[in-house]
């Protein structure tokens, strides 16, 4: 339980009380202590540039790419999918909802679906060849790899020959599901082993609880 909970006090503007944390735990694979530990992580991320209790794109970018500036197609997609309300910031609830999908015990269906939505850049319900090319070019630029256009086309041809089972030139959800089940390594980044023992990774919430109690 969390009767000694740090958050068991009047709600602040972006604060969460015990009931909120219990609800988030009930809605996810995390228990209340884990939600508290993730709140520590959230606070750290959400005050790294703008200290307003919300994760801005620059803050996510700083955490993932170690630089707040510059364009990154993939970071934009991740941010958009985390930002359920599409209001340009990630709230704690949204953070929990998204990380829940990355839990080692989350259903594979959820991971498959999230990855599909990530790669369906234009959100048409299909991963199209043009989108794949755009993403391949983006990763080559990001990793400073040089491949000839010919080789890029060859990689995409080969990928579509494998993934586009119905041969209509685009990857639909069914194609995608069958494809990633044949190539499970493609979902590797959809699981974060850290989430299994997040309270060990972020034990500072316990310390915070004690600080609050002694006041």
């Amino acid at each position: 339980g969390c009767f000694e909970c740090y958050y068991n006090r009047p709600k602040k503007k972006f604060g969460y009380d015990c009931a909120d944390l219990a609800r988030l735990a009930a809605e996810s694979r995390f228990n209340v202590n884990e939600v508290e530990a993730l709140y520590e992580l959230f606070k750290k991320l959400s005050c790294s540039i703008i200290d307003d209790g919300l994760i801005h794109k620059e803050e996510l970018q700083l955490a993932l790419l170690q630089t707040p500036s510059g364009e990154n197609l993939f970071l934009d997609r991740v941010f958009d999918l985390f930002d359920e309300k599409q209001n340009g910031v990630i709230e704690f609830e949204e953070f929990i909802h998204a990380l829940n999908i990355f839990h080692p015990y989350a259903p594979i269906e959820d991971k498959i679906d999230f990855a599909f939505r990530l790669y369906d850049l234009r959100q048409t319900g299909f991963i199209e060849r043009e989108e794949v090319k755009q993403m391949v070019i983006a990763i080559l630029i990001e990793s400073e790899m040089r491949l000839s256009d010919e080789l890029v086309e060859e990689i995409i041809d080969k990928t579509f020959a494998d993934a586009d089972a119905d041969g209509d030139g685009k990857i639909d959800k069914k194609d995608w599901k069958e494809f990633v089940i044949r190539h499970p390594s493609l979902l590797k980044n959809m699981t974060l082993p850290y989430l299994k023992d997040i309270t060990t990774a972020f034990p500072s919430f316990v310390f915070n609880t004690q600080v609050e109690d002694s006041e």
Partner: peptide, 25 residues
């Protein structure tokens, strides 16, 4: 010339998609 990688294997290498970095202290 080596066999080209799967496009999604390449794509999934992006740092922007590797959320494990959120947990780096």
């Amino acid at each position: 010339q080596p066999t080209p990688m799967n496009a999604f294997e390449l794509i999934s290498m992006s740092k922007g998609l590797n959320l494990g970095n959120l947990f780096d202290e």
